[in-house]
Design a protein around this nucleic acid. Structure first.
Lengths: 222, 222
DNA sequence: CCTTGTCGCAATGTTAACCATCTCCCCGGC
DNA sequence: GCCGGGGAGATGGTTAACATTGCGACAAGG
């Protein structure tokens, strides 16, 4: 009974946000592969909006790291190099470290229940794509439980790139992903529920290392 | 011998970036106090550009946390609450932790020399405002030395807010700031030069705690 | 007196057309 | 084969409008 009075934020969003959502989804669905050009006129025509909102949407996607743009050269879908993956891994590391500390110290039981709810959804996930979505949703829930606006923004800045990272991972090999990952996250949630910071930190670190080695360890050619 | 060939990045910037710089400077100079409204038409008139670049600039400033905007309600200069200060402090903590680790592990001697150069500039700083600018520049140099694109972006996302934070601090009390801070940073640079991760981490933590306690009053535990 | 509903203003959101500038690429000359 | 000029196409930026929305003022009603 903490905050039921908030009937609804109910704030409407701008057209640019919806355009950004459309483009983001198009990228994740594979319509625009890594390195593809995102032309303003083409997008504005396809989405039936003017170039203004499209420009804003591309700016937002650039902030999310999904897109990279250069002066007078337009926007292209980000390609993740091995160095990029290492950067994401290390930055994720410290961000999650803070998140876990905050969750253990200050999260409400409802927040942790929300995290466990995502784990439940994981058990029901059918294919790898759905599992990736749940994986991201799990971390979303953890950051939300930390109740730390700027930390969540920092996560948002790499969230889509991590999504891309996971998509690449399941493209490489889905062995063990569908079966091991739910149990791994269940342990994570349990440690958070028990407010056991040390155990949670160790589990999160192992979780990240798993994904990292799968992607960089086996075949490193490229 | 590493990268002297880079005569200059020399890439041109958009109008929006310059507009953002103007507005940012106006905010730091006090022309727009916390909570002030930033009207598009007013800014576009004052800077003699159209509304397009102004909108982009405001978006960029929002990404930097200097400005907050809501649907159909325009942009207002950010006001830092005590909770915000705590958030900045904790996030800065983990970010700097990663930065120090990366610097100790991978920074070149030139990078560290750049950090020390900023410390030299600190000794010559006359007033508190100049010192704040050097303080920020010091951290900029450290993050640059880490050679970690995403970490630097995460720092950029809170950099201006930390700047605001320090400005508030010197407004509260300049006692000891001008005298102690240069020495403190000299120690920091020395630890980095010696590649002593443990010492550097401890010094950075102490540095942050100093600023934090000055601003939040006497005692605070978190 | 406080509340509630309406109205109008001002600022933002969005569109369209237009011009300037830049990048890329092809093509011809050397 | 290499280099430079020019055209095509895209982005950057401007302007002028129109649509939408938040908010305060003001008046009517309990």
């Amino acid at each position: 009974m903490s905050d039921q009075g908030k009937v609804a934020p109910a704030r409407r969003r701008g057209l640019a946000d919806e355009v950004a959502d459309s483009i983001r989804e198009a990228i994740f669905s594979g319509a625009y592969g890594p390195g593809a050009q995102l032309r303003e006129v083409e997008l504005s025509g396809a989405l039936d909006v003017s170039r203004g909102p499209v420009r804003e949407a591309l700016l937002k996607l650039e902030r999310e790291g999904l897109v990279r743009s250069a002066w007078h050269r337009g926007a292209t879908v980000t390609t993740l190099s091995p160095d990029d993956v290492a950067e994401l891994d290390s930055l994720r590391g410290v961000l999650e470290q803070l998140a876990v500390r905050e969750v253990v110290a200050r999260a409400s039981d409802e927040d942790i229940a929300a995290v466990e709810k995502v784990v439940d959804a994981m058990d029901r996930a059918a294919d790898a794509h759905e599992m990736v979505r749940c994986d991201i949703a799990f971390h979303d829930a953890v950051y939300a439980a930390a109740r730390h606006r700027r930390l969540e923004e920092a996560w948002q800045a790499i969230r889509c790139q991590v999504h891309l990272f996971l998509l690449t991972r399941i493209g490489r090999s889905t062995d063990g992903y569908l079966s091991h990952i739910p149990a791994e996250h269940r342990e994570l949630a349990t440690a958070l529920r028990a407010r056991d910071a040390e155990a949670a930190l160790a589990l999160f670190a192992a979780h990240r290392r798993d994904a990292f080695t799968v992607l960089t360890g086996t075949t490193d050619e490229n």
